[in-house]
Structure formats: structure tokens, C-alpha cells
Amino acid sequence: MSTVLSFFNYWVVVALMMIGFYCVIARGNMIKKIMGLNLFQTSVFILFVTSGKVTGGSTPILREGVELYSNPLPHVIVLTAIVVGVAITAVGLALAVRIQEAYGTIEDDHLGDDDDDERLALEARQRR
């Protein structure tokens, strides 16, 4: 029991990671894929933040009477990583929008399998 509780954060990390990973792999819908990716990344952020916790340590702000601080560095790192994650989400969504425009769907089941040069040229002519 104590193992389960003392590693609670890690269990959450693993669970989130697997859920996210499963989403990315198993879902055909591109938005869901991106959501899965977000979950996956978030789990890593939690892992990072967890590593900064020092048992008995207080918030890392310099003040009287406190000797032991938690490590602030992981939070800073995770902040950067979150920004990266947001950027990826933005690019991914933008691509999904463009794919919706080009293919009329964002279900990635065998999308584009029947694309070949002739067909694309034909469609381009029809559009014109």
C-alpha cells in the first residue's frame, strides 16, 4: 500500500502516458491524435515537476526560518516545455485544418492511399 501511495505521482504519470500514447496510435481522428499527444506530453511534465519535490521542503522563496527548499529548476524547465507543447499543438491543428480543406476529412484511416500523380492532376484540372 505504501508503495502505491508514495509513488502516487508516478502512477499518474504512467497512466496518463499510456492513455495519451494509446490515443495517438489508435485514434484515426487527427484532433484526437493531437489530444493524445498533449496528454502524453503532460505526463512528462508531471514527471519533471515531481522530480523537483524535496521531502519536507518548502516553496522556493527566500525567507526567514526556512532551511529546506524544493527544487525550482524543474518548474522552469517545464514552463519551457509547455510552451513547446503549445506550439506543437498549434502547428498540428493548423495542419489538420489544411488537411480538412484538401481532403474534406481528418479521419486518418488510409487517407491519401489512393492519391497518385494522375488523380491529383485530374482533380486540379476539375477545380480549374
Binding site: M30, K33, L95, R98, A102, Y103, D108, L111, G112, L120
Partner: peptide, 13 residues
Amino acid sequence: DRRALLAAFRYLI
């Protein structure tokens, strides 16, 4: 052509 979008998305994932 539009296959580039799919390629980019899969690359992104």
C-alpha cells in the same frame, strides 16, 4: 500537392 500535408502531419506526430 496535398500529400505533403499528410506527410507533415504524420511527421509531426
